[in-house]
Write a protein that binds this DNA or RNA. Structure first.
Length: 130
RNA sequence: ACAACAGUUCGUUCUGUCGCUGGCAAAGACGCCGCAUGCGGCGUCUCCACCAGAGGAAAGUCGGGACAACACAGAGCACCAUGCUUCCUAACGGGAAGGAUCCCGGGAUAUAAAGGCCCGGGAGACAGAAAGUGCCACAGAAAAUGACUACCUCCGGGAAAAGAUGCACCCCGGUGCAUCACCCCGGCAGGAAAAGGUGAAAACGCGGUGUAAGAGACCACGGUCCGGCCGGGUGAUCGGCCGGAGGGGUAAACCUCAUGGGUUGAAAGACCAAGUAUACCGGCUGUUAAGGGUUGCUCGCCCGAUGCCGGAGGGUAGGUCGCUAAAGCCUGCCGGCGACGGCAGGCUCAGAUAAAUGACAGAAUUAAACAAAAUCCUGCUUACAGAACUGUUGUUUCU
RNA sequence: GGCCCCAUAGCUCAACUGAAUAGAGUAGCUGACUACGGAUCAGCAGGUUGGGGGUUUGAAUCCCUCUGGGGUCA
C-alpha cells in the first residue's frame, strides 16, 4: 500500500478549483467541510484533493500550517480506503476539505474524523456508479 | 554562593518507520534524429540510493537602498521628509563617540535668594521665537504698543475747630479778609512701571543711589542673550577679555533657513505557447492636428493612420526567466576609544508557485517560548520559555 | 506581496484649523398622564475618546508606537 502524497494527488488547477466551489456538492463532518464533484482528469489518479484552513479562524500562519499538516498526514495514511472504491469504476473526483473548527485539535481526533468523511465520500461515489 | 540590573551569544538534540520540496548522477520507459540495425546523441517522464531544506525575530511594513518599468533632455512652482557636532555606512529618520540643555540623587563652599561648582545616574525630533503672522481658555488691572487700584504732579471745587505768612481794624492781644500747607471730592490732563490677591507663564534677581513719585535711569554683586578679539578643540563648543541688549511662551501652529527627494513597486518587468471579436454603441480629428503618454501643476519633451478615446462585452488565467554567489558567511591578523574598515585563507548555505520542514514511537530534563521564507539586503520596532558568558551593585560565609 | 483608510455612551453619529463640564438621536431607569399598556412630557444615569508614550500650561484633536477592523491592486 503506497502512502505517498504526490502532486498528481493534489488539486492544483485554478480552473478546476473555481468549478468545484461554484458547482460542487457539500457536506459537513464536525470540524471539516467537504466540497466534492465528479470530474474527468488528465491524470490516472482517482481523486484530487485540496486542504484548506481559513485565515478568519486562525490569524497566525503557524497555526494554519500545523492544522493543515495534520490533515494532510491523516489523509495520506488513510486514502487507500477511498482509492479502493474507485478501482474499476472509471470515475474520477475532485474534492476540497476545509477546516471550520475554531480551535487547534490533536492529531488523533483529526485522523478519526478524516476516516469518517472518507467513508461518506465512498457512499456518494457508490450512488453514482451504482 | 545568591539576588537585581545592563550587555553579548545561543535559542532543542539523537535513533527508527512512513511522507514532502529541490539538486545530482546510475537505471528504465516514451518520442525525435543519425546511421554501421542495435548502438550513439538530444528531450520528457518515472525512480533505488546520496546531498540540502525557515528565523532571531522569517512578523509589523516604520526608515533606507539594490533591482525594474515609465518620459531615467531640462526648468519653475507646489508638496513631502529631515534638522547640535564629527565619524561609520551603498544609504537612512539607523549606529558610534562627543557637546550643550533638562531631570534625579549625593557632596563641598557660600548665603538674602535664585543660581553656579564637583561626583554619579538618566532623558529627549536638540536649527531659528532678535524676519513676519496667528494663538495663549478661565482667572487676573494687564497675556505683550501693559495702566484698574494705590502713588506723584497739574487743574477745578469743597470744608474749616486748630497752624504759618501778609494786610486792615480795634487798641496791645484779639477780630476780620486773602494766600499757602493739611484734609475731602472730581478730571477724555500728565508722569511712572516700583506694590497688588490671579495664573502654566507677569515684563532680569537682590541691595543701594536717585527722584515730585518712580524705574537698569545709575552703581555693586549675580544671571541671560548678541557681536568682536585671543587661546584650546577637526567641529559642536569651552575659557578669558572688550563692547552692546533687556527681548514672555508656542514652530510635533503657519512659517523662515539649510539639506535631500522624479513617480510607481516583483501583482515591477522580459520572453514563449494557447485562445478571442479587425464584431457592437457613443465621442473626436485631418498633418501648423484631434487625442494620448503609471509624475500634483505649468512649460518643455515623446508617440501620433495598421486612426484615437470611452462604454459594454468576449477570451486567457499555462510555461520559462526575473530567483538567489551576495553591500554573502566563517576563521585569523592588523588599524581605530568605538560604530566599522583593510588584508589573507576557507566555504557555497531553502528557492516553493496553491505553495515543501510533518506524523508516530523511544531517549536526553518533561510536555519545550515567541513564531513560518515568497525578489533580495540593511537598520529600527514589537513578541519571547530557557541556557551560557561578561560587567556593576547589594547580602552572607571563609581566608 | 505592495498601497490606503477607520476606531468616540449598549447602537448610529457630532465636536472645523488644540481651550478645561466631550454633545445629539435612539435604547435603559424613575416620575407624571391612563383602568392598564403604547405614544407624549419632565428628570436621571451611562465615556480611561481602542491601549501605551511624547510635544504643549492644556490633547478626542498634533507626533511616535502597538492592537483590532475594513478597502484596493493581475
Amino acid at each position: 500500500m503506497k502512502q505517498t502524497f504526490s502532486k498528481e494527488e493534489r488539486l492544483c488547477s485554478h480552473r478546476l478549483i473555481g468549478i468545484l466551489f461554484s458547482k460542487g456538492h457539500t457536506f459537513h463532518q464536525k470540524p471539516f467541510r467537504v466540497t466534492w464533484k465528479h470530474e474527468s482528469l488528465d491524470f490516472p489518479t482517482p481523486v484530487q484533493v485540496l486542504m484548506s484552513v481559513p485565515k478568519y479562524n486562525f490569524r497566525k500562519a503557524v497555526h494554519r500550517n500545523l492544522i493543515r499538516r495534520r490533515m494532510k498526514e491523516a489523509y495520506r495514511l488513510n486514502k487507500q480506503l477511498l482509492y479502493d472504491s474507485f478501482t474499476g469504476t472509471g470515475t474520477q473526483m475532485i474534492c476540497a476539505i476545509t477546516y471550520t473548527g475554531k480551535e487547534i485539535v490533536d492529531y488523533d481526533l483529526i485522523d478519526a474524523k478524516i476516516i469518517l468523511l472518507l467513508q461518506r465520500l465512498i457512499e456518494e461515489n457508490e450512488k453514482v456508479t451504482g
